[in-house]
Nucleic acid binder design. Structure first.
Lengths: 189, 189
DNA sequence: AATTCTAACTAACAAGCGTTAGTTTTGTTA
DNA sequence: TAACAAAACTAACGCTTGTTAGTTAGAATT
């Protein structure tokens, strides 16, 4: 019978606390207490508080990056790509909803090296999304509103999904995907 | 010639710093340094760090509340109400974009009394928005998707607008309103 | 049985936190 | 010009922060 490593437990517990109060408001003693050990003992498993944050954030950031790269490289219509991006977000949200809180709110507390890497990933991601939308406008699949407004509107919804997912409890993933695709792509009128 | 009060200056500077790094990551010494005085001098003008946070957050929260109440009480179609809510958000975003960072990310650090008041306002706001959408579904103005998904989708976009507004610099407010109304209401296809 | 490894512990550190007390400077009013 | 109020200052408080050093108990390996 295999149990998860203590390091993973620390990261999971920290994710949950960061999710509630934010990185800066959670102390190493808070994390330790939640695991029922002393703060100093954490350092047998992790290098620093920074390391915890960076593991949480960069791991999901990489999932977004590779997921987006897969979508972009597929030979399908722009709308179909947008659909796949929506599904990517929902999958990650369902599996790592607490990590997304840190990713969205605490990325600025990454140390310089990680911060630069993160911002780069984020910009590349947005740029890829932008290209998909422009492709859709070129082919006439997507209406020619200001592309930045469309990009922002969809991405905002997807990035905030973790908040609603946590509040409403476990919604069925497939229903969620279907509804989100409908609302985001077809609009409400 | 009248200049703004020191208290207001503190709150404005604090808003800006909270916007960058979050409430817990900004110290009273940071705020003081940005004004070029000593931390202790801040207390000639404000009661506590908490007071700064609560003034920042509750002031805009109240703008949302009264704005929404005005919209709800008007005798217009549901779609028209949604449009007015969108415009309300854009106006507040343009005038208080930094305060919105604190409102979105640091509300949980309000002291109990203010926290309760804030959460109540937030819930009431969402409930009013929900009613507008349901009204629109009853009259057939709005497609009958899961209303919660529509609510969440529009509200996420509006609540995150401050981030984009800050990044893209001053966009013309009227153009922004027109585009947002188009994208959010008519969708992209 | 002796040794090594793992993961906990206690104790303590220097630095930073929000805040208070008491004092001095500055600017306005009598 | 003397008096007063506003707003700055210095100094310090008790507490919390992330982290390190050194130690110990138990498990795994030799």
């Amino acid at each position: 019978m295999k149990t998860i490593s203590r390091k993973q437990e620390i990261i999971t517990v920290a994710s949950s606390l960061f999710n509630e109060k934010g990185y800066k408001a959670v102390s190493m003693r808070d994390i330790a207490k939640a695991i029922d050990i002393k703060a100093a003992s954490l350092y047998n498993h992790i290098k620093s508080k920074q390391e915890i944050l960076s593991e949480i954030i960069l791991k999901v950031a990489e999932e977004f990056t590779t997921g987006m790269e897969n979508v972009v490289s597929e030979n399908i219509s722009a709308i179909k790509k947008v659909e796949k991006v929506i599904e990517l977000h929902i999958d990650i949200t369902v599996n790592h909803s607490q990590a997304l809180a840190a990713l969205n709110n605490d990325w600025m507390h990454l140390e310089e090296k990680d911060l630069i890497a993160f911002v780069k990933m984020r910009e590349d991601y947005e740029e890829n999304f932008r290209k998909i939308i422009k492709q859709g406008m070129d082919t006439g699949e997507i209406k020619s509103y200001h592309p930045e407004v469309i990009l922002f509107s969809i991405l905002s919804t997807l990035r905030t999904l973790y908040l609603w997912y946590q509040k409403r409890g476990k919604v069925d993933v497939n229903i969620l995907k279907k509804d989100m695709v409908s609302v985001l792509i077809k609009g409400i009128v």
